[in-house]
Design a protein around this nucleic acid. Structure first.
Lengths: 229, 229
DNA sequence: CCGGCTATTATTGTATACACACGTACAACG
DNA sequence: CGTTGTACGTGTGTATACAATAATAGCCGG
C-alpha cells in the first residue's frame, strides 16, 4: 500500500472507483468481455449499480495499464496486441524474471513458498481439466508469487501486468494453447520452485531464464503457424 | 501508441484528461508543487481552465503510477517515499538497465544515439549551472533514450517511471545531491553511451550494471548520514 | 435492388450539482 | 484552564445534466 507520507499504512479507501477497477479488470481477465466488443460505460455502470463517473476513472486506469484502449469518441476496447507486441512483453519478462527468481531464493518466507506450491498445483489442475483461463491465472499467481518472494513489489507488479496482457492475448486465441505447452510450462514452474526451496539462487535464475526464453519461443512458434495470428 | 485492434496507429485523442495528466505530471516533476501540500482538484481545474472531471481522471492515473497518493476524503499528496522504497526502485532498475544497455548496443539507430548524446550534454550543463531539476531530467532522458534504443517500449517506460519517482524523492531533498555525485553519474552515462556507440553489448551491460549499483550505493550512503532522510 | 443522403440514436467527453466527511473555530461547561 | 460539543467551511466522492460526434436506420432516387 502506497502512502503519501513515509510508509505508515493508511486506511483503505472504499471508493466505487477501486471496486469498479477490480471488477472490470477481473471481468476482462476472465474473458467475460468479448474482445472486439466495446466496453460501454453506461452498461458497466448499471451492472455495478453505480454512476458513470467512478467507472470512467477505473477505465482510465485500465487504459493506462494497457489492458484496454480507446478510439476517440467511439469507445474503449479490450486490447488486441500484435504478435510483435506480445513478444516484446515476453522479452521484458526475460529481463526481470531471473533477477526475481534469484532474489526469491534468498528471501522467500515459508508462507510465500506455500503460496507458490499452491499456484503450481492449481496450474496442474487447470491442465487436467483443460481450463485454459484457470491455467493462465495460476501462471500469473506463480510469477506474482516469485515477485513477492523476491521482496520487490515494484518488479513483481511489473511482471504481473505483463503476464496479464500476454494472457489476455492468449485467451482470445485459446484454441492455440495446447495441453503439451501448458504442462511444459508447469514443469518449468515446478523446477524454479524447487530451486527456490533449496535456496539455490544460481539455479533459480538459470531456470527462470530458461523458462522465460522457452515461453517466448513456444509463443513465437505458435504465432508463426497460427492461422490468424 | 497503444491500439485496440492490432497495431495500426490511431488518431491521437485530444482529451482534456490527457492534457491535464501531462500538465500535472510535469508540474510535479518540475517541483512546482510543494511536497506535503495537497493537490486540490478545484485549484488544478481552474488553473487548466477545465472542470474537475478530467482533472480527477488524470489524478487517478498519477495515483496509479505512484507519483501521488490519497488520504481518504482528505486529499491527494505528492508521494514521499521512504528510504527503503527508493532503494527498491533502484534495485528494480538494476535488474533492467543492463538488459536494456546490451540491447541498445545492438539496435540503436543514429538518431537515438544523437538523442543520448544530447541528454548527456544537457546533464553536464545541469551540473555546471547547479540546476538539480535539470540534471535529474536529463538523467531520465538518458535512461529513457537507452530504453527506446533497446527497442522495448515496455521496459523503457518501466525504467522511466521508476526514475521519475526516485527523482521526485531526490528533489525534495535537493540539498543532499552534491555536484560530485552528479558529475560521477554523468561520467557513467557517457561511458555507457560510448559502449553503445561502439556496438559493444558486453561493455554496455557491464557499465550499466556498474552505474545502477553505484547509483544505489551513492543514494544509500547519502541516506545513511542524511539528517532527515 | 442498391447507393447516397438525411434524421435519429447511442455513446462518449465535459460540466455542474449534490451529498458526505473531515478539520477548525468557538462557545459552553466542568 | 482544560475539555467537549457543535456549527461551519472546505474539499472529496458520486450522480446527473449537457454537448458533440460517430454509428445506424430510414428514405429517396437511380
Amino acid at each position: 500500500m502506497l502512502t503519501p507520507i513515509g510508509n505508515q499504512p493508511i486506511e483503505k479507501t472504499p471508493t466505487f472507483r477501486d471496486a469498479a477497477y477490480q471488477a472490470i479488470k477481473q471481468a476482462i481477465l476472465a474473458g467475460k468481455i468479448e474482445p472486439g466488443q466495446p466496453l460501454v460505460e453506461e452498461r458497466l455502470a448499471t451492472m455495478l449499480q453505480i454512476s458513470r463517473t467512478p467507472v470512467r476513472e477505473a477505465l482510465a486506469i485500465l487504459e493506462h495499464e494497457g489492458l484496454i484502449a480507446p478510439i476517440y469518441r467511439r469507445g474503449l476496447f479490450v486490447c488486441k496486441l500484435s504478435r510483435e507486441q506480445v513478444i516484446e512483453l515476453f522479452t521484458a519478462n526475460e529481463a526481470v524474471e531471473p533477477f526475481l527468481a534469484r532474489r526469491a531464493a534468498f528471501y522467500a518466507t515459508l508462507e510465500q513458498l506455500a503460496a507458490l506450491d499452491l499456484a503450481i498445483a492449481e496450474g496442474e489442475a487447470g491442465v487436467e481439466s483443460g481450463d485454459i483461463a484457470g491455467f493462465l491465472r495460476s501462471g500469473r499467481l506463480f510469477h506474482a508469487g516469485v515477485g513477492m518472494a523476491a521482496d520487490n513489489p515494484t518488479l513483481a507488479q511489473f511482471v504481473e501486468r505483463n503476464e496479464e496482457r500476454v494472457d489476455l492475448f492468449l485467451m482470445s486465441y485459446g484454441k492455440a494453447v495446447d495441453a503439451e505447452m501448458m504442462s511444459a510450462s508447469n514443469r518449468e514452474h515446478r523446477a524454479i520452485y524447487r530451486a527456490i526451496v533449496e535456496r539455490d539462487p544460481d539455479a533459480a535464475a538459470r531456470l527462470a531464464t530458461y523458462h522465460s526464453q522457452s515461453s517466448r519461443e513456444r509463443f513465437a512458434a505458435l504465432a508463426n503457424d497460427g492461422s490468424d495470428l
